[in-house]
C-alpha cells in the first residue's frame, strides 16, 4: 500500500501532530514546520524546516519525524528533506496556537 489519496495525507498530518518541538511545546504541524508531503511513484517525500539553521532541536526532530513515519501504517518508503526555502517565520505558526501545551514527559 502506498500513500496516494488525500485521506492518507490527512492521516500523515495527524500522526505528525504527535511530533512535539520540546523547546516550544507545540507540534511541528501547527508550528508551520511541515512544508510539503509529496508522493512520487509510491514513495513519500516529506519536506520540512526548522526555526533557524542553528536550531539545536534539528536532529531530534528529524529522528522523531522518521520514527513517526516508520510507524505509520501504509507508508513503506519515505524520505525526509530539510529545506530552507521559504525561510520559516512566526507568521507560519497556526493562529491561536497554545505554546507549551505539551511539556516534555513527566516521570
Amino acid at each position: 500500500m502506498t500513500v496516494d489519496t488525500p485521506i492518507d495525507r490527512r492521516k500523515i498530518v495527524r500522526k505528525l501532530r504527535d511530533v512535539i518541538d520540546p523547546e516550544l511545546g507545540v507540534n511541528i504541524v501547527d508550528l508551520g514546520l511541515v512544508y510539503n508531503i509529496l508522493i512520487d511513484d509510491g514513495k513519500m517525500v516529506l519536506e520540512y524546516t526548522v526555526t533557524t539553521p542553528g536550531c539545536p532541536m534539528r536532529r531530534y526532530l528529524q529522528q522523531q519525524i522518521e520514527e513517526t513515519l516508520a510507524s505509520t501504517e501504509g507508508i513503506e518508503d519515505y524520505e525526509t528533506k530539510l529545506v530552507w526555502e521559504p525561510e520559516w517565520n512566526v507568521d507560519m505558526i497556526k493562529e491561536d496556537v497554545e505554546f507549551f501545551a505539551h511539556p516534555p514527559p513527566m516521570q
Partner: peptide, 16 residues
Amino acid sequence: ASVIIPSLSGKLVPYH
C-alpha cells in the same frame, strides 16, 4: 538541559 540533552543524545529527560 531538557532541550540540550535530547538535541545531542536524541533522548528526552523525563521530568521529576
